[in-house]
Each structure stands twice: as C-alpha cells, then as structure tokens.
Amino acid sequence: MSLVSGPGRGGITEGQLPSELRLYVDKHVTYIQSLDKRKDELEYWLTEHLRLSGLYWGLTALHLLGQPDALPRSEVLDFVISCLQDDGGFAAAPQHDSHMLYTVSGVQILAMLDALDEFDERVSGGREKVARFIANLQHPKTGTFAGDIWGETDTRFLYGALNALSLLGMTNLVDVDKAVEHVQACANSDGGYGTSPGAESHAGQVFTCVGALAIAGRLDLVDRDKLGGWLSERQLSNGGLNGRPEKLEDVCYSWWVVSSLAMIDRLHWISGSKLQEFILKCQDPDHGGISDRPGDMVDVFHTVFGIAGLSLTKYPGLVEVDPI
C-alpha cells in the first residue's frame, strides 16, 4: 500500500461551497480512501516525498471520523515498514532518505495501529533502532534536534523527536532538560515561540514548543495568560485562525492554535462554534476533503487538521483527539 497524500481534486464548479453546514463524514472517508487510487494523476507522483506523513494524516482523520478500519491495516503496516531505512529512520517512501519528519509519522502510525510489538517482531530490535536514530540527531550542546544527517535544526524536529520517543517509551535516550532549555531560548516576550532563538512567534512553532514542554512535563514554564492571549488573537471575525498577526486565516491553524490552547487550558478563549462554521465551509461537499479556505483545493493535510479542529472544539459525533 502506498497511498494517501497530496492534494486531491475538489469540486466541479469554482468556489462551490457546502449548501448546509454539516460534516460530510462519508464523503471525507471516500476521499481519503480514493487517494491511493490516483496514480494516473501527476500530483500523486509529485507528492511522493511526503507519502508516509500523508498516510498518517489520512489515518488520523479516519480515526477521528470513527472509521479506523477504512484503510486495510496490514497494507498500511507493510507500507510503513517498507519506508524503514538501514539507519533506523523512516523515509517518506521507499527510495527516499530518512528524515525526522517521516520517522515521527512512522512511529505515530505504528502507535495508532497498536502495532509497536508487531513491529519489533517483524524487524528485530526495531523500536530501539528507531529510537537511536532519533536520539542521535540531538545536538549535545544546544539540546535541539536536527532533521537528518545534513544537520538542519528546527523546533519542529525537537517536538517530533520527543513525541516519537515518548510513544516508543524511550525518552531516556535523550537529554530532555537540554531540549527544554532550547525551547525556552525560542520564547518571545509576547508569550509565543519561534522556530529558533530570535525568531518571531508563529502558531505552528507555538504548538511544537508547547507540545514539547507538555511531553517533558514542564508546562509550568509557559506564561499561560500571555500565550493564551496571543493565541486567542489568531481568531478572525470570519471564525478562522491565522498563524501570526495580520496574516490570512487557514484551516491548518485550527490544529496548531486550538491544540496549543487546549494544552494550556485556554480553549474557551476563542469561539469554538465560529471556528466550526469556518471549517465546515472549507469542505468540498461533493468529493470530500477540506481546504485551507472556502472554495480552495482540498488536500489530506487540511482535511485532518480541519477534522481535528472540529474534534477539539467538541463537534458532535467525532472521536476526541489528544491535543499533544
């Protein structure tokens, strides 16, 4: 199985919006299932470099929609294992290189399918191997993590590393205190966090930094009122959320912003119902999937983050998502 990624193709008429504001569950399930069958579209091939993450996003969406079996488990597992490289990292797809981003997706899928033991049976010492790959990417001096052997660092990788290691039960392999120190160095006076020390606060980076602190059990370091204030200002009058002051709204921030608010107990500082309205308007009612803004092309990335945003704000009928 090698599937589920890349923009799908959306509705027929330009900018067609859902006629009624409800969640088109069946359409979304069909949309996600169809992503594997799009090999006759150039886009399918142009998105191979994020296939494993695409699979994770699709599976998560299906879990939240209450249809975890809509993709065949054994084929998913086979594909995940086919992405494992000799160095213990996962690549986006076979024939690609290991990278932190896909290693995290690989581990997340294994955990979601409750397949970590099975993974160890099929790949001897698999869990440990993967954990070591991740641990080796920690920078001993600064505590931050590189994405791969080429060395680029980013708080996205730091969060991913802690997340995957905690799923594997092996955070002991890294220096968590150093990692926390690095997160602190990325903090800004507005309460938010940037991608590296000195960088401007950005909702995506806030999520990775707060998520990392949550995993490390150090949420005490967050100025909740200040950060909650900054995050709540991300909501615009149309109900959507942006990632930084004076930028456009986008469905993917429904996840970054809302889960961060949930982690610091400030979820009630934005309007959940207005956000739900905005997300529902971004659906493609005919072919399924959710886009960044109403009328735009859907893709699996915005589909999962839209559904996760709905789940976090307690939209009826969805499985509750864990904000971390």
Binding site: P7, R9, G10, G11, I12, E14, G15, Q16, R38, D40, E41, L50, D250, C252, D284, H287, S291, D292, R293, G295, D296, M297, V298, D299, F301, H302
Partner: peptide, 21 residues
C-alpha cells in the same frame, strides 16, 4: 507541504481523453 490558496478545479472525471493522455 500542502496546497494553499489554490482554487478548486475540475475533477478527474472531467478531463478529456486528450488531456488525460
């Protein structure tokens, strides 16, 4: 990473034989 600001376009079925080829 994902499509941003790209308007929805005609779906696969609508492509003509030539475009498909």
């Amino acid at each position: 990473m994902a499509s941003h600001g790209v308007p929805r376009i005609a779906p696969t079925e609508a492509r003509t034989g030539q475009a498909r080829q």
